[in-house]
Design a protein around this nucleic acid. Structure first.
Lengths: 417, 417
DNA sequence: CGCACTTTGTTCGACAACCGAACAAAGTAT
DNA sequence: ATACTTTGTTCGGTTGTCGAACAAAGTGCG
């Protein structure tokens, strides 16, 4: 026991596929009970099309596991009152870990995506892998100890990384972006330490998952989450599932061309989105505009940081607003093309740009929707993330939850903390 | 009988889902026999994981339908020699219809995607819907009469349209692009006339299907087919299936920005791909360059058509080559961004640009691959379509075939012609 | 209030898909 | 020739599911 492999993000659990029967129905029923706050056996029978007898059997099995419980009688529909079933949100807890380029955060959530405990630390992740290991151990222990419903079992750990994740070697950071991490199997130790499975994925993908289940993209099955941080990344959800592409590294939105005659980019092109909306690009742009806006609040600030530009934008500083609007316009150009191509239902912007709210959205929507075709994209909702800094950690925990809902057997295996 | 509804492209057949058993296994076995030119029951057992007894039962059922047959003994693997099973490619025929802006084509194929008969007519589809109806009836009858294995039953009809297809109303052309077609349920009559189901889809999507099964994208499960015709459209295949987006109109690649300061486009943006690679754009560009290339073979040609530009390019004319290279470069910029974003495995270019072969590919690959990131896209194969003008009709027929492979019951229903 | 009708959830017999063991047929290796 | 392997079938048993029947617990109308 306690010997779980690192799970690849694409395949959280490979069922044997032979026994398609009860195990599968149990998963379906479990997910239904989870989705509907309260539901009866008869409801499930109607929704799934299985007979009441079959549903009863599956429900009996789930009651045994303690994941659902009977909670009194519901309203009659003209006959006997149904027995209400409820999902037990506190039956297990999940650890969600967010590794960024400059920070490490850990959340403990229940099975409804509620954050029960939260720790956040600044750390130079790029240069100090050993420090990250130690920090993770400490933060996980602290948050687990602080969580409210004491005694709940830990079900699994989700980890978000600021790097593409190779499905075949999920524990590895990209050696190009993180040379110091070369050869390290980053997060396997976490799983064996706690005796639970670990799910590793890219941070933008997990941000998308969080938005899909708990944020602005609830109900959108085809949408994109754009994370504008030190770099620009995207998590794409297609038909309700994270889209990963041919080799698992989809989402590199930073090198979509938005100005063919713009500045050269490291990728070999000119006028890439990344040259306009990355942290460094925004700060540099603000710096270069200082002379033209002598009265700006940013005038005296040295060194200028992205936090300064953000604060100034929210305060209505003209220079900062000019920088923000320019970035929004370029982002809008890129999004317009993608909306038309992929026929997306909604887009959520997170990361530092997402914190600017309407200051970003007004020019962004203007730029994007003026370029989209009728029907396809006029209906695409563009918003900024409301989930805040816990977004990635929450998405990581959610991936664990989804894996378990799809395969209830994972609920069994967790050992007590 | 003979009363099939128009099938939406997304859901060719909605199984009841209750009986998952033999019907499903039979579908899996049928597809395996179809994929492998020759295969034994024991092979199928190993591949599917079902027991030999179960596989034997499913095979027996399929033998009864006449869709597969036993074809002698295979090579021994150290024991009794296996009985070889083969798919009967000539058990049924399929009609594939290609409606373009200026032409109507019809193909009859067997169950292996071989074109047995083919008719092609120029026609002003945009303005004359009634003429299209009459032409379709005539061409379908002619091709069916001309097909080689006489007596084979017609299984279904696939139709490709030069318009986005609304999954909820598959028979309707876009009223914005085709005002004269407003209110017409375009192709339902075809199905009732022949007593078979009709599958309608967008032409670029069907081109992608054809490339996926019979062309350059065989083996690629994440790729894009770009059809550069009078407009520019794309068919996107994700995880082996046509990607349709939130409302079924994905693939509008024409309005990806490739030059933020380029000429204005009808969509409201500037420097859209469509302003550089559409038929009209290419001809206009050639026209405007005539003065600078006085020796060009195109100098005396009036009116200048896209066919002239194509021919001149293939003949190595400097003006035409300049136009082609420019278009290739812009297309490359757009593709680079999409490759990075979607992590595609390959891209196939069809339509008039696709006919230019290496004249297009050399500058296109140069433009696209120089802008893509290591790992993600350096491995993306960019080619031109080899399927020729039958591509869309072939894809349409293939969609019917795939629908039937997934649900063998469709094989039963076809009436003799 | 009583009686007919509905709805819910369980029990039980039947059925279909699938498996595994046993077996015959037809091979190969030595 | 003998021992072992592979293939495909037969047959009994397990499992998921259904439908009919039923008891429990409602609603609604005369």
């Amino acid at each position: 026991m306690g010997d779980f492999p690192l799970a690849s993000p694409a395949a959280p659990a490979a069922l044997d596929g032979r026994r398609v029967g009860e195990r599968r129905l149990r998963g379906v029923v479990l997910e239904l009970v989870w989705r509907h706050e309260s539901i009866s056996r008869a409801d499930i029978s109607r929704i799934t099309g299985r007979s009441r007898s079959t549903v009863s059997e599956a429900v009996a099995g789930l009651l045994d596991t303690g994941l659902i419980r009977e909670a009194g009688a519901g309203r009659s529909r003209g006959g006997r009152r149904p027995v209400i079933l409820r999902f037990r949100d506190d039956a297990r807890v999940i650890l969600g870990v967010d590794i960024g380029a400059t920070h490490v955060s850990v959340a403990v959530t229940d099975l409804r995506g509620r954050v029960l405990a939260w720790e956040d630390r600044s750390h130079d992740v790029r240069e100090d892998p050993e420090g990250v290991d130690a920090l993770l151990v400490a933060l996980c222990d602290r948050t687990l100890a602080a969580r409210s419903p004491t005694g709940s079992k830990l079900m699994g750990i989700g980890v978000g990384m600021p790097s593409p994740v190779d499905p075949k070697r999920p524990g590895r950071m990209s050696p190009r972006l993180y040379p110091a991490w070369r050869g390290r199997d980053a997060f396997g130790a976490l799983g064996t330490r706690h005796g639970v499975p670990v799910y590793v994925d890219n941070d933008a993908n997990l941000g998308a998952v969080a938005e899909h289940w708990w944020g602005n993209a609830t109900g959108s099955d085809n949408f994109m989450y754009v994370k504008a941080g030190s770099g620009v990344g995207a998590g794409i959800v297609v038909d309700g599932k994270v889209y990963r592409g041919a080799t698992g590294v989809a989402g590199e939105i930073g090198h979509v061309v938005v100005d063919g005659s713009g500045p050269p980019c490291v990728c070999g092109s000119r006028g890439c989105l990344a040259t306009f909306v990355g942290t460094r690009a925004l700060v540099a742009r603000a710096q270069s505009l200082l002379q033209r806006y002598p009265g700006s609040a940013l005038a005296g600030t040295t060194p200028l940081t992205i936090a300064d530009v953000e604060a100034a934008t929210l305060a209505g500083d003209p220079l900062a607003l000019a920088v923000t609007h320019e970035a929004a316009r370029y982002l809008g150009i890129a999004l317009a093309g993608i909306i038309n191509l992929m026929n997306l239902e909604s887009i959520v912007v997170g990361g530092h740009l997402g914190r600017l709210g309407e200051h970003l959205l007004v020019p962004l929507r203007d730029a994007a929707l003026s370029r989209t075709l009728v029907g396809s994209a006029a209906s695409c909702q563009i918003t900024t993330s409301q989930l805040g800094p816990q977004s990635v950690a929450l998405g990581a925990a959610t991936q664990v939850l989804l894996g378990a809902l799809a395969d209830p057997r994972l609920f069994q295996g967790a050992t007590s903390r």
